[in-house]
């Protein structure tokens, strides 16, 4: 294996879980998430000779998010909310509840809001960088984040009531 390929494999092994999870947060679907992460890594590998000394992870993340945002533009897709979580023996109830809450809460957001929330609060990127990666203004990031958080706040009590009724 060429040295560049070995570097890529090392990078991909380290980055794939986080990219896949980010894609899951954006789509709510494990299969779509894996497809999207795979697509991002394919494009990253295709450009590897030019980016591997720079910010390969940033390149892969930008590719992933823009691929998913573009994918939502046509056709518009529903955000699945009936995802069956992976079952693990320990803490299954907590895990299920957390995942269900997360999926429902993110599903209440528009694709753009979801992308901004995930870049800001999952990848912990500053607003200016989120704006650059999504090709929008910082003002749009601020206002969209604010709107998204407002939705989260208003959705949470409603969901807590639903949980309590279960």
């Amino acid at each position: 294996m060429a040295r560049g390929d070995a570097d890529f494999v090392e990078f991909a092994r380290a980055a794939s879980a986080r990219l896949t999870h980010a894609a899951f947060l954006m789509t709510g679907d494990h299969h779509q998430a894996e497809d999207a992460a795979q697509t991002a890594l394919v494009r990253t590998y295709a450009s590897w000779s030019r980016i591997h000394d720079d910010d390969a992870y940033g390149y892969a993340r930008r590719t992933l998010v823009n691929h998913l945002v573009d994918g939502w533009r046509r056709p518009m897709r529903e955000y699945p909310t009936d995802e069956v979580p992976e079952q693990r023996r320990e803490d299954v109830a907590d895990d299920v509840a957390t995942r269900r809450w997360l999926i429902a809460i993110l599903g209440a957001l528009s694709p753009r809001e979801r992308a901004i929330v995930i870049l800001r609060y999952y990848f912990d990127l500053p607003e200016a960088q989120v704006a650059r990666e999504l090709s929008v203004s910082v003002g749009t990031v601020k206002s969209t984040s604010s709107r998204a958080l407002e939705k989260l706040r208003s959705a949470t009590p409603r969901m807590a009531d639903e949980e309590a009724r279960r």
Partner: peptide
């Protein structure tokens, strides 16, 4: 919640990734 639901064991088919990438 976003971090707690991560699945560190997620594995992608890297051979396929590299083939498509080429």
């Amino acid at each position: 919640a976003m971090r707690a639901t991560e699945r560190p064991d997620a594995v992608l088919d890297l051979a396929s990734v590299m083939r498509e990438g080429r």
